[in-house]
Simulated assay, not measured.
Amino acid sequence: MARYIGPKSKIARKFNEPIFGPDKVLEKKNYPPGQHGSSKRRAKKSEYAVQLAEKQKAKYTYGVLEKQFALTFDKASRKQGVTGEMLLKFLEARLDNTVYRLGIASTRAAARQLIGHKHITVNGKLVNIPSYSLKAGDVIGVREKSKSLEAITTSLSANRVSKYNWLEWNKSEMQGTLLALPERDQIPENIKEHLIVELYSK
């Protein structure tokens, strides 16, 4: 499956945000990448450029490529509710994102790898599709044979799940439950979803 595998620090600097996690380069060079660095005078962005950049930021954050992102937006636009908020809810409900939120993987990219290698179950059944869409009540677990995997145990030791009150984690069973799709104010990502909606509305 195609995924972005280019320089991550460069993308983080482009948006001036730690999209792929903590980044020391971003702290040292808090200006966009480019031949002339921070000294280059940058023209004011057009409305379209601002909207496009916001979509790109969301795509990089959740690790979704163009076609899949467009399909997710289309699904959100057909649902009752605010389209931008529904878009983020559907992105949050992806299996790879939820595995990351539960702390089973340290990054979304690592979560996709665990899922692809068949280490993750949903309601007791192996699922190897990172984009699998979860529903409220679904139970996400670590396959029995994979519970001692170093990558998983190391990530779980950080215990991030307490930060997300739409998820519940059972430490002894090494499984979590999606209690509900998160509300917009619960999602920590700095994404201006209304700009994405405006872009697709053109």
Rank of each mutant, 00 (worst) to 15 (best):
Ala2Gln: 01
Arg3Pro: 00
Lys8Gln: 12
Ser9Phe: 03
Ile11Glu: 09
Lys14Gly: 10
Lys14Phe: 12
Ile19Ser: 05
Pro22Gly: 12
Glu27Leu: 13
Pro33Met: 12
His36Thr: 08
Ser38Asp: 06
Ser38Leu: 12
Glu54Cys: 02
Tyr60Cys: 04
Tyr62Leu: 11
Lys67Ala: 13
Lys67Pro: 07
Gln68Pro: 01
Ala70Asn: 10
Thr72Lys: 00
Thr72Tyr: 05
Thr83Pro: 01
Thr83His: 00
Met86Phe: 00
Lys89Arg: 08
Leu91Asp: 00
Ala93His: 09
Thr98Val: 08
Val99Pro: 00
Ser106His: 08
Arg108Phe: 14
Arg108Pro: 12
Ala111Ile: 07
Ala111Arg: 04
Ile115Trp: 03
Gly116Gln: 11
Ile120Ala: 01
Val122Ser: 11
Lys125Val: 09
Val127Ile: 14
Ser131Trp: 06
Tyr132Asp: 14
Tyr132Met: 13
Ser133Trp: 07
Leu134His: 02
Asp138Lys: 08
Asp138Ile: 14
Asp138Asn: 13
Asp138Tyr: 11
Glu144Tyr: 12
Glu144Ala: 15
Lys145Met: 13
Leu149Phe: 03
Leu156Arg: 11
Ser157Ala: 14
Asn159Pro: 03
Val161Gly: 05
Val161Arg: 11
Tyr164Lys: 02
Trp166Arg: 10
Leu167Tyr: 06
Glu168Lys: 12
Asn170Met: 10
Asn170Thr: 14
Glu173Val: 04
Met174Lys: 15
Gln175Asp: 14
Thr177Met: 11
Ile187Arg: 10
Asn190Pro: 13
Leu195Pro: 06
Val197Thr: 07
Val197Gln: 03
Glu198Gly: 02
